[in-house]
């Protein structure tokens, strides 16, 4: 068995005729915090869904913790989807009960104490919560597991900047030390400091995979600045006549 936690080879996924991933090779080791960065529609969510088994690749293969995606990998992967999938009559505590039944590694007490520190009232129903608060509840559900791989799809998009810092700190202090965290986002400047590695996705392909410090050392600029340079949209009049 390899010591890679995530291994993808020639991963290709299309929705009908539209390719979303076009040959992704990726290796990520344990104990890393990795940013999955790319503009809208670059394939971030597709890659994450493949890793947690919600989608099947069109061609290519992938392994999590040395095993093909299946019941075992699902037991060691903690996934934060990009949208809410719970019924809104449920309370946070109902969800905690549900997760305790489904996942052996879910720590109920930890979830309750994370709620306290995030200022979430676990007895409230989801429909009484704001969008940001619901996102916090989802984050609690995901981070209260001691998983090997955390897949966080846009964990900070819906919350205010102060809560963003707090959420990043929650991720930093709660992930299990041998665990790897894969965070997809386009809010790069906010997450840059917490990342070990950055993976740039462009049109379904990986165009850069390096450590944040290497990028800063080599390019003399932040990952955020590099991202803006690579993905700068060409102005409409570029090359044409005004």
């Amino acid at each position: 068995m390899s010591d890679c936690l995530i291994e993808c080879r020639g991963l290709y996924k299309s929705y009908g005729l539209r390719p979303a991933l076009r040959g992704v090779d990726l290796e990520v080791g344990p104990g890393r915090i990795v940013g999955l960065l790319g503009p809208n529609g670059s394939g971030k969510t597709t890659l994450i869904k493949l890793l947690c088994g919600l989608l099947q690749p069109t061609t290519g293969w992938l392994a999590v913790d040395g095993r093909a995606v299946g019941p075992y990998t699902k037991s060691v992967v903690s996934y934060l989807p990009d949208r809410m999938y719970f019924a809104d009559w449920m309370k946070a505590t109902d969800l905690f009960d549900l997760f305790r039944d489904f996942y052996q590694d879910f720590e109920y007490e930890k979830a309750m104490s994370m709620c306290r520190s995030l200022g979430v009232e676990p007895g409230d129903r989801l429909k009484a919560m704001s969008k940001g608060t619901k996102e916090k509840v989802q984050l609690v559900l995901v981070m209260a597991r001691s998983a090997k791989l955390y897949l966080l799809d846009e964990p900070i998009a819906g919350v205010d900047p102060a809560a963003r810092d707090f959420i990043l700190r929650t991720i930093l202090t709660n992930y299990n030390e041998e665990g790897t965290v894969l965070i997809s986002t386009h809010l790069i400047s906010d997450v840059e400091k917490v990342l070990d590695e950055a993976v740039f996705l462009k049109e379904g392909k990986i165009m850069l995979h390096a450590t944040v410090d290497d990028i800063r050392e080599k390019e003399g600029k932040s990952v955020d600045a590099l991202f803006r340079e690579i993905f700068r949209a060409e102005p409409m009049w570029e090359g044409g006549e005004l």
Binding site: I33, D165, L168, L172, K193, V194, L195, D213
Partner: peptide, 17 residues
């Protein structure tokens, strides 16, 4: 390392280094 990393809001591996 963990305390310092959380305080600075950085990755523990970076603080370790």
């Amino acid at each position: 390392v963990r305390e310092l990393a959380a305080e600075a809001g950085v990755n523990p591996n970076t603080m370790q280094r």
